[in-house]
Design a protein around this nucleic acid. Structure first.
Lengths: 325, 325
DNA sequence: GCTTGACTTGAAACGCGTTTCATACATTAC
DNA sequence: GTAATGTATGAAACGCGTTTCAAGTCAAGC
């Protein structure tokens, strides 16, 4: 493989001149410019991008840390990130973690090793404090709400979103309200749990342990929830559900076993998945795609200017009333 | 940032020794090994991975070219690739193309520039011939069937899969059969089209232009198909549908507008999406996840050994009869 | 006592593009 | 006529880890 020195020899110029031509710098005579391009052609030259990265100290690569890819939520976020990355000429390096701490640390280490210019964390398991140690290695944007203000974050206010949905149910007369979440430890889930406690306490309704369904991530989990629900002695009259996928599972299984929705059970999902629209599921629309876009933009703006307009950005959620609640 | 030379100075050894320690090579005295690790600690050293890439001429990065991410098919394939990549210590660099030739070429150029060790192409728009020019720049694995045998490919035999589904419908007495596809140009779609022509001709049934529904990719498209279907004077009695997502759209909209499935319209989907199971949709199970896994393994095996067991690998599809056909 | 093989270690070359600095000529400015 | 600019170009340093090669030490083998 020819390198830039071979090229210089072939074209009868210095490597500096070759570099100038290759990068479109001014101050190169037309004559030499032509000679260089001819040499490129002749030697079938192509830059070694690794050498460029090393020399420049930048890569125009952004890392994306996320637990899974094959999941409507995360794939929507990446799609948003990807769209913006494409626009600004950045590439994406994927770090799938399965929520394993080991893998999350690996991604952070890669940031330290300067493999990428910045990192977008879609979701994580390790404590925030861990990120502290890596702040100086490159900008990190979190896609979740954190209490501290020294992180870059773009987030949806899940507390408010949950509150809004709860208030709606309460206004409709519901007092026996339950909810489903994905994993208990995530900040989103904790925000939802807090909202649940707060709002129910406010109206004197009682939160119940057994009305909280954990581990609800996929369509199939909705079926499971419905089965548990039907087997209960005291059933909630309404459920706030992790995602529309899970809500769809609930609604579809309810139809099959003849549970009337919303009369016997009101259901509100989250996301505004096409499936929710199709099934007429009342849902809280969450701008996942936009979340990804904004996360990238925040990172990009920082990378290009070294300054920020703001470190935190909150995205709105909107309740869409349809037929299930 | 400290580099390996600072480290050598600090530890009082040569850079070669530092490199040996850092890479766990044998033949280093315990004493020096310790000194090096202490220096690493003291200087808070971290390798510059770009320098490693440059020096080694390898990156342990695999590129993944695909049109979209937020799509059940592609996100399943990546998930499979990702799982195997994780296992073998490789990283994934994403190239989202939106089926734009420009972007596909960009990905191939990156392979030339040695940004990654190999490339997995999930789907593409450019002609195969284009790939020829890049074959020498690194192994390329295609996830689609190609006629030529000098490519690495892992694929599902869509022709056979379609034939099987068609035969099943025919055995059930259907003669007026239509189908939905995503985009006409893809090899998968063309295989399906060919199967359609062949099988229908075989039994003397007539293929009809207006029974082919193009541009069916998402759930919503199923609704559109159903609306078109209902408006037809001569309706097909059965439809083979791009994916279970689209099939679900058809089935759900049919339910809403009171079309009886499978009596008035039989539907067979593809993929074996959880949604298909939930809705009882008869489908042809396609091993997308496995496809990704195998694609990575093929690439990996080549990268590590420089040899191949086989260049082509075909994955089976299986008809799962449920309630819609 | 000498050969042989295993173990240690460092200098230097290598992979390769970018960038700075110095040099030199040609203009333009005053 | 001289200073100040602008244009053009190359040598060399820089970013930094890996690897080869030569050389040296030491214990085991004959």
């Amino acid at each position: 493989m020819a390198n830039i020195r071979d090229l210089a020899k072939e074209a009868g110029v210095s490597v500096a001149t070759v570099s100038r031509v290759l990068n479109g710098h001014p101050y190169v005579s037309e004559e030499k410019r032509k000679a260089v391009w001819e040499a490129v052609e002749k030697l079938n030259y192509s830059k070694n991008i690794q050498a460029v990265h090393l020399a420049k100290g930048r890569t125009a690569i952004v890392g994306v840390m996320l637990p899974y890819i094959h999941h409507p939520y995360f794939s929507a976020v990446i799609e948003g990130i990807s769209k913006e990355a494409l626009r600004y000429g950045y590439q994406l390096l994927l770090f799938q973690t399965n929520y394993e701490v080991e893998r999350e640390l690996e991604a952070l280490e890669r940031l330290r090793m300067r493999q990428m210019d910045g990192l977008i964390v879609c979701s994580h398991e390790v404590d925030w404090e861990v990120f502290d140690a890596y702040q100086e290695d490159g900008p990190i944007v979190l896609c979740e709400q954190v209490e501290r203000y020294d992180f870059f974050t773009v987030y949806i206010d899940h507390y408010q979103a949950f509150v809004r949905a709860l208030r709606y149910l309460i206004k409709k007369g519901h007092r026996r309200i339950g909810y489903c979440i994905g994993r208990t430890t995530g900040p989103n889930s904790q925000a939802r749990a807090a909202a649940y406690q707060d709002v129910l306490r406010e109206v004197g309704a009682l939160p119940r342990r057994q009305w909280v369904f954990d581990g609800c991530l996929f369509l199939e989990d909705g079926k499971r929830v419905m089965e548990q629900w039907i087997a209960m002695e005291e059933r909630p009259s309404a459920l706030l559900v992790t995602s529309d996928q899970v809500a769809a599972g609930i609604v579809l299984h309810a139809r099959r076993i003849g549970v009337r929705i919303p009369d016997e059970l009101a259901v509100i999902g989250f996301d505004n998945d096409p499936l929710a629209e199709m099934l007429g599921i009342t849902t809280v629309a969450l701008p996942h795609f936009t979340l990804g876009e904004r996360a990238f933009r925040l990172l990009h703006h920082w990378l290009e200017t070294g300054r920020v307009a703001r470190k935190q950005e909150e995205l709105p959620a909107q309740l869409l009333v349809r037929d299930t609640a």
